[in-house]
Simulated scan of single mutants.
Amino acid sequence: MTQVLAIGTFNDTEAAALTEAFGCRVLAEVDGLGGLDQAVRDAVTAVAFKGHQGFGAAEMAQLPGLKLLANYGVGYDSIDVAAASAQGITVTNTPDVLNDDVADLAIALWLMQGREMQQAADWVRSGNWAGEGAFGLSRKLSGSKVGVVGLGRIGREIAERLAAFKCEVHYHSRSQKQTPGWAYHADPVALASAVDFLFIALVGGPETEGYVSKEVISALGPRGVIVNISRGSTVDETAMLDALEAGELAGAALDVFVNEPQIDPRFLALPNVVIQPHQGSATHDTRAAMARLQRDNIAAHLAGAALLTPVN
């Protein structure tokens, strides 16, 4: 019996690599566990997991020999880590290898929103440039006052890119960090009050749900723009939409949403909002590196070696 089970939305290349490396079975969803023979479930010691479907205590209990839950992705909010720890299961993730791509997309979203690049492209494609003249003026971004909520690995990469745009960088995190003179704010409301562009780089999960609250959004004000590449849950989405529709927020640039991919249709009617389909790490190179790191953690577990990127 194989010791490894793959569960989730693996593409053909990823599934083939897992099968070749570990001879594992691949299930499309966590719900598929119930369809496996008990002997198969008893043999599993490691799960390669990819997806947003919840993996909690009930699912773990169906795999009595499980010792490793190797997550594909840096975010692991769909996994009940406390339940895993209680059952002696180690969770791993795939940090660092995706930092550059996610930070790059954050900057691209900022530029796209501020310079109205989608609208300008539509102006050309529609024939308006030739028929009606130049597109309207947009907003200067270099030299702006910018804030980053969450100065972890990805947040720091975003901040460093913003510094290269000659921006005045502010940040909020659980503790003050060593930085090249960036301004620290112990409170997210104070951070929002000090900047015009607010980048969200928090981890997902219950602890950060609604962290960018109605009060934070109000403090950002009518010139403010939210850029979110973390999780949709980190922002009070209803408060953000209300502020956008009322002109109390200048705009938003979003790669993540609550209830994605079924996003709130109110977003679609807002010309000052840039939307992307949660593609922060979606490049061939980075996705391959993420899959490789997931497999490396599983290989280390099977060999009895130290895990590369444990979470708990």
Rank of each mutant, 00 (worst) to 15 (best):
L241Q: 08
D196Q: 14
V189W: 11
I217K: 04
G181L: 09
R174Q: 11
S175N: 11
W182S: 01
A289T: 02
R287E: 05
I275T: 14
S173Y: 06
I217C: 02
D255Y: 12
Q262E: 15
R266K: 05
V189M: 11
S173C: 02
P261R: 13
K177M: 09
G204V: 03
L249W: 03
D187L: 07
M240G: 04
A183I: 13
V235S: 04
V189G: 07
P188E: 07
N272A: 12
A253M: 07
A282I: 00
V258Q: 14
T208E: 01
Q279F: 08
G210S: 07
A289H: 10
G221F: 06
A289K: 15
G247A: 09
L198F: 08
S175Y: 12
G181Y: 12
F199P: 00
N259G: 06
A250C: 02
E245W: 12
D242P: 01
E260S: 12
G210W: 06
P261Q: 09
G232S: 10
L270E: 03
N259L: 06
G221P: 03
R174H: 13
G251F: 08
G232T: 09
Q176D: 03
G205I: 04
P265W: 13
L249C: 05
G221E: 02
L191E: 07
P261K: 12
H284V: 13
A243D: 01
G232F: 13
A269S: 14
H278A: 07
A288K: 12
Q276I: 00
L241R: 05
H278I: 00
T234S: 14
F257H: 01
L191H: 10
P271T: 06
Q262W: 08
I275H: 07
K214R: 15
E237L: 07
G251S: 04
R174G: 13
H172L: 01
N259A: 14
I229C: 14
R287G: 01
D196Y: 05
R287D: 01
D264L: 01
L191Q: 05
A201P: 03
S173T: 11
V274F: 14
G251E: 03
A288T: 09
P188L: 04
L241C: 04
K177A: 14
G247Y: 09
T286H: 09
S193E: 14
I263Y: 10
V212T: 08
F257V: 00
E237Y: 11
P206Q: 08
A183R: 15
F267W: 15
F257I: 00
Q276A: 15
E237A: 07
H185T: 02
G224M: 08
S213H: 02
H284N: 08
L249F: 07
A250T: 00
R231F: 08
S218L: 04
E207W: 03
T283I: 02
D196S: 14
E209G: 05
Q178D: 15
E260W: 11
S230Y: 12
E237I: 01
T238G: 12
A246P: 10
V195S: 07
L244G: 09
M290R: 11
V274R: 10
G210L: 03
G204L: 09
V227F: 12
A253G: 15
D196V: 00
E215R: 13
Y211R: 01
Y184K: 03
L220I: 03
A253H: 10
A250D: 10
Q279Y: 04
